[in-house]
């Protein structure tokens, strides 16, 4: 008897549902780690005398690469939230046979909101407005 490894979760072997599930897990981890980091960074800002640290922390947070990373965070929020809605609908027994349509609708909404975010954030990252 040969017992193969049981942790085969490589999505290309399966379908859209597997991708959706795996990215839900990854975005969830990203958000959880972000929250820890966020509390950690903010806790620095009240340290030091006369708010000196506060100013330096805020300065770092306004650097373009931090703002660009924030767009990634925005995408994680959008994906996790909107795909989460899809999963909740499925758990309510709605749209199980239309899960592909549900997924792509959620992604269309997420992309629309992300492009809005990019347009808004662009001037702060590059210094010139996108549109």
């Amino acid at each position: 008897m040969y017992r193969p490894k049981t942790s085969d979760i490589w999505p290309p072997r399966y379908g859209l549902g597997m991708w959706a599930w795996l990215f839900q897990r990854i975005s969830g981890l990203v958000l959880a780690l972000y929250l820890i980091g966020h509390i950690w960074v903010i806790s620095f800002s009240i340290a030091g005398q006369g708010g000196i640290r506060f100013d330096s922390v805020l300065e770092t947070l306004q650097k373009p690469y931090v703002l660009a990373l924030e767009l990634l965070l925005f995408w994680a929020v959008l994906y996790h939230g909107l795909n989460g809605l899809r999963v909740i609908l499925i758990d309510f027994g709605l749209g199980i046979r239309e899960q592909h349509i549900l997924f792509w609708t959620a992604m269309a909404v997420a992309l629309a909101l992300l492009s809005w975010g990019i347009i808004e954030a662009w001037p702060y990252i590059t210094g010139t407005p996108l549109i």
């Binding site: 399966y14 379908g15 549902g17 597997m18 599930w21 999963v87 199980i96 899960q99």
Partner: peptide, 19 residues
């Protein structure tokens, strides 16, 4: 069940077990 839908994807009789 995490509603991953692999079962529905591979079923040779086109059954949707998730449903």
């Amino acid at each position: 069940c995490h509603t991953i839908f692999n079962c529905q994807k591979v079923c040779p009789k086109s059954i949707n077990p998730t449903w």
